[in-house]
């Protein structure tokens, strides 16, 4: 992998059909999120028509038990889901890279200590842990992001630790030490750029996980009550699934497609960033 191979990267990526499909779906989700206030101005919580109107000419995806437009909810929910997915991933990556990087580069007792800490977090089932954190901190966008980041960073830390361990003994890193560079400089400018590929891949897959966790929390009523989200819509529609199936179904499809798209993009990135694996 070299920077000058970036055009080669796009060529390899675009050759992968399922990855391109994922990218298209993901981009449309982004467009939905961006255009929500333009197409559906006003609050998605506002009453729009008769409760439980089935999908039809007036409301394309129908209305829910309180007469709110499901389509508007999905558009506005895209904003929440994607924002939480991306922000939680960024926070999680930052924690994971710092912990994993320090553990992998220094090794020894520091590594031991940090890895035991990581294991401590990994012993608690992710989703239950997230519920506990949100319940303690009271549900809000911030607490959800923090909860997701706290339950997902150990995976990043483990990956980064392995990469840094392998790279720290490479001769180009030793050359940096011999020249007299500080540890921080070596870690940030010489080792980290060489493991961008796996970090990108795991990051993209984590966005999908984050969206799922957020939906799950919202479904259980632990979402931010002031913000429309896909999980909230499903939660609201679950009691009327037999009489008004559209309320829970369409947000469910939105989650399914978005998560699938992100996973496809992630795998496409993986193949394109590691061309040798694919040729085999």
């Amino acid at each position: 992998m070299t920077p000058s191979a970036s055009t080669g990267f796009w060529r390899r990526y675009s050759r992968n059909r399922s990855a391109m499909l994922g990218l298209v779906i993901l981009l449309s989700a982004l467009v939905m999120a961006a255009s929500a206030p333009l197409i559906f101005p006003g609050s998605p919580f506002a009453l729009a028509g008769q409760p439980r109107t089935p999908p039809g000419p007036e409301f394309m995806l129908g209305t829910d038990t309180l007469g709110r437009d499901v389509l508007a909810g999905i558009f506005h929910g895209a904003r929440t889901s994607l924002m939480i997915g991306v922000l939680a991933t960024l926070v999680s990556l930052s924690i994971g890279i710092v912990v994993g990087g320090v553990a992998g580069y220094y090794g020894g007792n520091i590594d031991n200590l940090l890895m035991r800490l990581t294991e401590f977090f990994q012993t608690i089932p992710n989703f239950l842990f997230a519920i506990v954190i949100v319940a303690i901190m009271t549900p809000s966008i911030q607490s959800i992001i923090i909860a997701i980041a706290i339950v997902t960073w150990p995976a990043v830390a483990r990956l980064v630790r392995g990469e840094f361990m392998a790279l720290r003994n490479r001769e180009f890193v030793q050359a940096c030490v011999v020249v007299g560079m500080s540890d921080l400089r070596i870690l940030a400018f010489h080792i980290l750029p060489n493991c961008i590929a796996p970090i990108t891949v795991i990051g993209s897959l984590m966005v999908a996980t984050a969206i799922l966790v957020e939906s799950g929390l919202a479904f259980l009523g632990l979402g931010d009550p002031n913000v429309m989200s896909w999980g909230y819509l499903i939660g609201a529609g679950r009691t009327v699934l037999r009489t008004a199936w559209w309320v829970a179904t369409f947000p469910g499809i939105a989650i399914l497609l978005t998560v699938l798209a992100i996973n496809l993009v992630g795998e496409g990135l993986n193949d394109a960033l590691n061309p040798r694996l694919r040729d085999r």
Partner: peptide
């Protein structure tokens, strides 16, 4: 600064992500 090293592996001893100019000059700059 006074003791420098040349390494064995011509492929592994240069960071693949940077241009040669930076690889040589970085030590001087710091």
């Amino acid at each position: 600064k006074r003791v420098q090293m040349v390494f064995q592996d011509p492929f592994g001893s240069l960071n693949p992500r940077y241009r040669v100019g930076r690889l040589i000059s970085e030590g001087m700059i710091i």
